[in-house]
Computed example of a mutant assay.
Amino acid sequence: MRNIRVLIVDEVHPSMAEGLTKLGFEVETRTNLSLADFASILPSFHGLVVRSKFKITADLLENTSLSFIARAGAGLDLLDVDACLAKGIAVFSANEGNSDAVAEHVIGQILSLAHKLHTADTEVRHGLWEREGNRGFEIKGKTIGIIGYGNMGKAVATRLAAFGLQILAYDKYAPSADYPGTMEQIFETADILSLHIPLTSETKGLVSTEFLASFKKPILFINSSRGPIAPLEPLLEGLRNGRIKGLALDVLPNEKLSSWSPVEIELFAEIAAYPATIFSPHVAGWTVESYIKINEVLLEKIKAQFHL
């Protein structure tokens, strides 16, 4: 594999560079590049490992001779996949690497909302011993709708089955044989909704006021996929009218908090004022173990690509 050069532009676990080197690739790690510098040196590499530092556009790829792009994460919304395919560039993601982490995170969010663990903890820390106000509900016997039945959705369903929930999984492109469900069934019966779909032109803004109005019961709403799938405005409206009785967001439409406009700040503040809300900074798949497993998945895919 000599003279096949691979550029790593994001902070990833050292096992990626080590693994690529063992496979015979020439590896260069440059995590402090500006976009201009990145664009200028990219044509001299045959492989690219990226997480979320740069958006890989058709313009960036125009003068390159890349064989592959490996994204150290699950989603590919920061890559122009069509442009990659048009140039014969193999695109790898590592959905399998952090599905366990996402599943555990989502279950933790559900249990915290159902049993009011987050609010009870805060109150006790502030000297309040309010038992009745923190009476929760059991998730056994409830119905969860899972939209998206890829690695993440399957991992969540597999673990939640042990809790005695009725599971309905809907995936337009990969229907579930284990827990088949339609959107109509989910709208009709779901007590909990968890999103596990990629951000595409089809899913952007999927969660609207009309979408939430389709649910026959108030729901716990969980989003650990991508923020733009569920804009904050309809989520706030759902909290106001009671269609959302609990909200857990690991992702936001705009995750660069320092760039928020006054409108965004006010909108988020109003949502956060509801006690039945939980937020985390896009870390559902961000564990000690997944940091390594993501690399293991990508290295196996690269090995297969080059028949190593």
Rank of each mutant, 00 (worst) to 15 (best):
K293D: 01
E202R: 14
E188M: 12
D82E: 15
P14K: 14
Y149C: 10
T21H: 11
T277H: 02
A248R: 08
L128F: 01
A284P: 01
A101S: 15
K301H: 00
L66S: 06
P218L: 15
I278S: 01
G24V: 04
S224F: 06
F45Y: 15
E202H: 14
S15E: 14
G227E: 11
M183D: 10
L199M: 08
N254M: 07
T203M: 07
K142G: 01
E62N: 08
T200M: 13
S34A: 08
L128G: 07
F279A: 00
D250C: 10
E233W: 04
E266S: 14
S34Q: 09
T277R: 06
Y170S: 09
I222R: 11
V6L: 10
T143E: 08
I292G: 01
P175H: 10
W129H: 06
E184K: 15
G133D: 06
L236N: 11
G141V: 12
L249T: 08
L236M: 07
F38G: 04
R51Q: 03
E130A: 07
G242Q: 13
K140P: 00
W286E: 00
I89K: 11
H105F: 15
F187S: 13
E18Q: 15
K256F: 03
V12N: 03
R51E: 01
G75Y: 07
L128I: 13
S44T: 12
I4T: 12
D77V: 12
T182D: 05
L212Q: 11
E188R: 12
N151E: 11
F268R: 02
K53R: 14
K216Q: 15
P218M: 14
R243F: 02
S225Y: 06
F163M: 12
G75C: 09
I197K: 09
L7D: 03
I197S: 05
F211P: 12
L85A: 14
H105L: 08
